[in-house]
Design a protein around this nucleic acid. Sequence first.
DNA 1: TCTTACGACCTATCCACAACCTGAG
DNA 2: TTCTCAGGTTGTGGATAGGTCGTAA
Length: 303
Amino acid sequence: MNTRRFKSRKSRTRAKKPKFLSLRLQLSPDESKTAGKQTEMPTSADACHQLDLFPPHPENLVEEKYTYTHDQDNVAYFFSAGDGGASTLTGLLDASAITTSSSNNKNSISITSLSPSASLTYAYGGQNSELARTALRNKEREPSEEKWVYYSEVVERKVKEEEVTSGAADLRWKDPSTKTQRLSLKLDYEDILNAWSDKGPLYIHAETPQTVPDINDEFLAHGVSWGCNGGSWTVPEMAGNIYNGGIGVKKEEEMKLGQREASVLRYKEKRQNRLFAKKIRYQVRKLNAEKRPRVKGRFVKRD
DNA sequence: TCTTACGACCTATCCACAACCTGAG
DNA sequence: TTCTCAGGTTGTGGATAGGTCGTAA
C-alpha cells in the first residue's frame, strides 16, 4: 500500500476508524514491560529474515502468534494461533515471554504473555481501547490461517531478539527498573570483514551493496539460489562455479542447470500465484452484498 | 534541466444489512 | 456450566474521488 496515498486520502474525506493496529508504533520503550521477562535463545538462522522476497500484506497486522519460518524456497513470517490462543494481542503488547523453537528446516519464534491482565488502555494511550478490544475480539477466528505483517516490524522485532540473545546483550532488557529499553544492534564491522575475508565477495555483485535480489536478475536465473542454512546465506549449487572457477564436469553442470531452471520456474510460479487478492471470509455475506440494491455503487435501502 | 499538462493507474471510502460476536442474566 | 437474548461489530461489492506516476511537450 502506498502510505502517501493513504495519508492524502484520509485528509480528503472523513477519516474512517482504522481497523488494524501497528504494534511497532505502540511498543514504545517506556511501555514495554520487562519485569519477569523470560527469553530463550533463538537457535539459528536469524539472519535469514533479511531476505523476504515477497512483500508482506499490511492487512492482518494483529494476530495471536508470531511465527517465522523459512525453507529453501521462501522466507516468510506468520501470525497464527496454532497454540490454542495462548498468546493474545495483550500478550504481544506485553511481550512477557519470547520463546523460540527449532525443528528440521523450520524455526519459529513465539511471543506469549505471562501477564495477560496487562493494561491495554495504557498501551494504546487510553484513547483506542475500543480498538484494542475489537482487535482482541477477533482472536482465533481463523486458527491456522497465514497472516502477514509489516516487514519493518518484523525486522525490528528480530533485531531486539538478536540483541537479547547475543552475549553482549544489553542487560537493561532484563532489568525491570530500567525504563529505557531502546536497544541498538552494534556490529563489529572489522571482525565481520575479517571473518568473511576468505569467503568471497560480500555482495552478489561485488561492487554494489547487497539488497533484496531481483528474481529476474540473470545472476539468479543462472543457478544461484538462496538458501538459509544455520543462519547464514549460502549459494549451494553454483558457489564454486562463481567464485572458485567452476566445478569442471560439464554434464553435471547441465543437469544442475536444468534443475535450477525448474527450481526457478517453480519459484516464479509460486510468486505469481501468491494470493494478493482480497480473501472472502464469509461467502454468505458476499452473496448478500451481491444481491443488495445499489445506487452508484453504494448500498441503498430496500423498498 | 525544470515545469506543466495529461492520461492511466491505484485504492480508501461510501452505503445497507445480515451474519457474527460478546457479555449479561 | 450451558443456554438465551439483546445490542454492538464486522464484512461484503461497485462506483467514485482524488492522489500518484510516467511521459510528452
